[in-house]
Design a binder for these strands. Structure first.
Length: 292
DNA sequence: AAAGCGTGGTC
DNA sequence: TGACCAAGCTT
């Protein structure tokens, strides 16, 4: 059973959160920055940082002119700092190769670093009003339930997931883009992972999962991400030291963050490889681009 | 194509 | 408490 676009869009008009990157005066650059920051990071943590970035770097060329270290420091504790580096790279490419204008074409967007299947279409739809399937984890869950009657989405498949959503999309551009935003919002506010609020759902009447009696998820178990004790945690601790100082720090200052020397050194080396840290001529360590 | 990559909030 | 979750991308 397809989701009624009119009903969903009406619900969105009434209930959507007033997020700054959804406002009419938000630029395509603002939308792109928000999409990158929102990858695996909750809205509440993104909002204040997004505002800082918009006033500090209102256009791609402004970000491109900043050093990597400044960008990483401004990224703060949003997590996955490689995103910040890639956004900086993307800004440089947009400034030099696209007249400082964020591309509206999906394939052009896909060619930029850090922009994948979801983000490219999110920018095309939300910044430029294009009719393209926008599939994130929220949308996959909503479709799994409302259309397929499953408790949750199985493993992602870009091709299949996009075809599912394409089939639901209104024919015209403007309502299609609005529908895409509404599907995501429904997944974020109502059709949530843990405790779906089906009583408040505007499309529960046509939901296949409801009709099937809300069966539990039957697919393969999802891999659980460990964090404590992993390289990710150690890299995070090292980076936190570098973020906290303007001056390069000695190796000794980094050694205190983690007891296992082998893991520590491996992580520091990987940060250097990833371009998230740099070693100065005198052997100390710093965020990249500020002391070389 | 499965695994790696940060961080913090929730129940 | 710790497992799960949050607008993914890259290799």
């Amino acid at each position: 059973m397809p989701i009624d676009a009119g009903i969903l869009i009406d619900w969105f008009d009434e209930r959507a959160r007033d997020l700054p990157w959804r406002r009419a005066d938000c630029t395509a650059w603002g939308v792109l920055v928000s999409e990158i920051m929102l990858q695996q990071t909750p809205v509440a943590r993104v909002e204040p940082i997004w505002h800082e970035w918009m006033s500090r770097w209102p256009v791609p060329s402004a970000l491109a002119a900043a050093s990597q270290g400044e960008v990483l420091r401004a990224w703060g504790k949003l997590g996955y700092p490689r995103r910040a580096l890639r956004l900086h790279e993307a800004a440089t490419a947009i400034a030099t190769g696209h007249d400082d204008i964020v591309p509206s074409d999906v394939d052009t967007l896909l060619a930029l670093p850090g922009i994948g299947a979801y983000t490219a279409r999110a920018v095309a739809a939300f910044a430029y009003g294009k009719r393209v399937p926008v599939v994130d984890t929220n949308v996959r869950r909503v479709v799994a339930r409302a259309v397929h009657g499953a408790g949750d989405a199985g493993p992602a498949s870009v091709t299949r997931d996009m075809a599912d959503v394409e089939a639901l999309l209104p024919a015209a551009e403007a309502p299609a883009a609005r529908f895409s935003a509404a599907l995501m919002e429904l997944g974020a506010l109502v059709c949530t992972a843990r405790t779906p609020r089906c009583a408040a759902c505007p499309v529960s009447g046509s939901c296949a999962w409801q009709r099937a009696g809300r069966p539990a998820y039957a697919g393969p178990a999802k891999a659980v991400q460990r964090y404590a004790g992993t390289d990710r945690q150690v890299r995070g601790l090292l980076l936190d030291v570098l973020r906290g100082t303007e001056e390069p720090v000695s190796k000794r200052r980094l050694d205190v963050v983690w007891p296992d020397a082998g893991q520590r050194d491996r992580c520091l080396a990987s940060l250097l490889t990833d371009g998230l840290a740099e070693q100065t001529a005198d052997g100390r360590f710093a965020l990249p681009g500020e002391h070389s």
